[in-house]
Design a binder for these strands. Structure first.
Lengths: 135, 135
DNA sequence: CCGCGGATTTAGAATTAGTCTAAATCCACT
DNA sequence: AGTGGATTTAGACTAATTCTAAATCCGCGG
């Protein structure tokens, strides 16, 4: 029988999207990514950016994060980590809390869920906003 | 001078929206709430539901929560608490992890933010899905 | 070569959540 | 009765994302 292995997978479009995310240290939205990807690959379409993002997400190459503020953001950091969001200017930063296993177990005990991951979100004020800088 | 105190505030529409949320122990979306509110107050409009939700949120009477899955959800539980989400069926449950002050301080230290609140999200599998129940 | 099929890309239409607008209504107070 | 601020309504509008259908790409068998 035919072992019809389809392999291509990492197409130029997907690669462009991936690179855009890799070279940014912030958390771009799909539309930020579309803008930037179009600079490398002028013919790329919005739908392809979404398709590529879905593909990259499923492949574990990028992480999607979403909070109340409308659009999803994408993060090149794929290991478990946490987020802080500024209540004033909306800035989003990554940080990493160690020892989350115990935390996860505590959460599992309380919720009766079989745990898989925990993620914590700090809301507060970023250093710039605390210092009273204009945004 | 006119001390034009406007006080009404808790209009029948807002109250209907509030009651809908209070009597549910799950986390309805705006459109769930609209459906239910219309049963009490057939003339209520979608926009009023959103206005009421904003009002109730600002008054601290309900909590808005939003995760990746499209629409915001509303929670009658307004004190600080955490959420568990089932990766299989999507169920969302509240739980409350004690001693979050230390956690918040640790997060603040790592992120350099001035902390205001922390919220944790457990991803895993709910008891039903673990038991292999069909949804 | 040639072309078929599966996967991908494209452009634009469609859908969904949520906001905005302008006109009508409500209501406390004069 | 009348004015003004707040609220409600219906529907238009916007933004984010998904869907659709046609075009393209690509490896493989004939």
């Amino acid at each position: 029988m035919k072992d019809t292995k389809q392999k291509p997978k990492l197409t130029p479009q997907r690669e462009a999207v991936y690179q855009v995310i890799q070279e940014r240290d912030d958390h771009p939205t799909a539309s930020d990514i579309f803008e930037a990807a179009r600079r490398r690959l002028p013919s790329i379409s919005y739908a392809t950016v979404y398709n590529s993002l879905r593909y990259l997400k499923e492949a574990g190459l990028v992480l999607e994060i979403s909070f109340g503020d409308s659009a999803s953001r994408y993060d090149r950091e794929t290991h478990r980590h946490d987020h802080a969001i500024c209540n004033d200017c909306g800035k989003l930063v990554d940080f990493d809390l160690p020892d989350t296993t115990k935390l996860m177990q505590a959460a599992a005990r309380k919720s009766h869920f079989k745990p898989q991951s925990v993620h914590l979100t700090l809301r507060g004020y970023c250093p710039d906003c605390v210092a009273g800088n204009r945004h």
